[in-house]
Amino acid sequence: MTKDSEFDIIIIGAGVSGMILADELLSRTNKKVLIIEKRKKFSYDKNLCFWNKPKNLITEVANNEWNKIAVYSNGEKKLYESNEIKYLRINSKTFYSFFIDRFRKKKRIILKMNCSLKKIKRLTNQITIETNKGTFKSNIVFDSSLKKEDFKKVKLFQHFRGIEIKTSKPVFKNKEVILMDIQNKKNIFNFMYLLPFSQNRALVESTYFSSEIYDKEVYMQDIKEYIHEKFRINDFHCKYKEFGIIPMGKIVHNDIKNIIKIGIAGNWNRLSTGYSLQNAFIYSKQLVDQILKNKPPKIKEKYLLNFLDNIFCSFVLTQPRKVKSFFKSFFFKNRLINIVNFLNSTTSLVNIIRIIISLPKLRLIQTLFTYRKW
């Protein structure tokens, strides 16, 4: 084993959490870092959306921003307009380019592409990582990898398919995001989501909260019908497609000393919303704080928010037809700043109480009797 194969920290996966954590380590420590990534190259394969508060590293390099946020339910519309709170979008290619440019200025990081993980072994004082490009050793490993069996105990998922479309007519309000247009479907919760890039180009998604993942044609049919009914458009050009599955349940792993799960594998996403980008910045800072104090790296659990998320997920699974009234109350009865803080997990106890009071109380009480930990 040579010095070229020994590192202070190894990060498995150059996804969102891996890149943000690597940058935090390089900015605040003198650690030698290796990132291994199974993909051959980075490409535009997803869109990352987030609020401009709290500000983070990529706020200023976002591809798009909107200051009008619309929510629809049962034909009613709630429109938020703010010059201070904005909804941002950065595509994955821009995201990766931003961090790779930052890494080039550092000499303590190596990013190995097309590098597949084979095995992780814990020895007495070190961890050995076996890959198709060699064997590497480290004191600490941050692992974002997932296996199919990790999802076996998860009973509920947020799943979506989206397409970027171009129309011949200018039909979209290019300054107004449709954050949620709740659909009237029996025994299932479904909403449409629309990001307008111009008056004739937009990303349109169909999202479900359910235990079953559907065939791609289900989402595509949703999108076609929505575009026709909402904008009277039948013909459009498809420029890009994306698909995502986010667990709405905790992924449980066996704890191994100094092998720390991150990203979705580490339950960095909010169970109730799927939000994870802002958490990646918050949790990366917490992990590096612990490393600088020579303590075992771990994130701080948000017990109250986790408890509320568990109640919400139970509500979705047991009363899917009533979820739309839950979201309508959440968006229609609260100020935008309170909503954003709650979604970002940066909220106060007072704000949490305000949110709870705004929700359908009888249904919440009913859910408490059927509550189960996810």
Rank of each mutant, 00 (worst) to 15 (best):
C238A: 10
D45C: 09
E81C: 06
E76K: 14
K166P: 02
N279A: 14
I355H: 05
T346E: 15
Q290C: 15
I311H: 02
I182S: 01
C49D: 12
I352Q: 08
I9V: 15
F327M: 09
I352V: 15
I109G: 01
F151Y: 15
A265I: 05
Y371G: 08
N47L: 10
F189I: 05
E24F: 02
Y80W: 09
T318I: 12
I246Q: 04
A22Q: 02
G134K: 03
E301S: 14
L117F: 07
K373P: 02
I337E: 15
L179V: 08
M1F: 13
R372L: 12
L277K: 04
N125H: 13
E205F: 04
F209L: 13
T367P: 03
L117H: 02
K261F: 07
R102A: 08
K121L: 14
D215M: 06
E37S: 00
L308A: 06
Y72G: 03
I291Q: 03
R321W: 11
N114H: 11
F209S: 00
K186A: 12
L195E: 05
L304Q: 09
I355D: 00
R28S: 14
S138H: 05
S211Y: 02
Y44P: 03
R201Q: 11
K333S: 12
A22T: 11
R161W: 06
F197A: 07
S198T: 08
Q319N: 13
Y219C: 03
R363F: 12
F332G: 08
Y275N: 10
G274C: 06
V316M: 06
N114V: 07
S276C: 11
K78N: 08
L308H: 03
Y283E: 07
S145W: 02
K224S: 11
L21H: 00
G18F: 01
T29M: 07
F42S: 06
K300N: 14
L368M: 14
N30C: 10
E6S: 12
K121C: 11
H159L: 00
N334I: 02
V252S: 10
G15H: 00
E65M: 09
R89W: 07
F332R: 06
K373S: 15
K133M: 12
F103R: 02
V218I: 14
K68Y: 10
E130T: 14
L271P: 04
N184I: 06
L34T: 05
G15T: 01
N344K: 08
E60S: 15
L48I: 15
I163N: 03
G15F: 03
L48E: 13
I227N: 02
D150K: 04
K32L: 09
L111V: 15
S17F: 04
M220D: 12
L287K: 05
E176S: 05
R363Y: 13
Y44V: 05
D181I: 03
N334K: 03
Y96T: 01
L287S: 02
F189W: 07
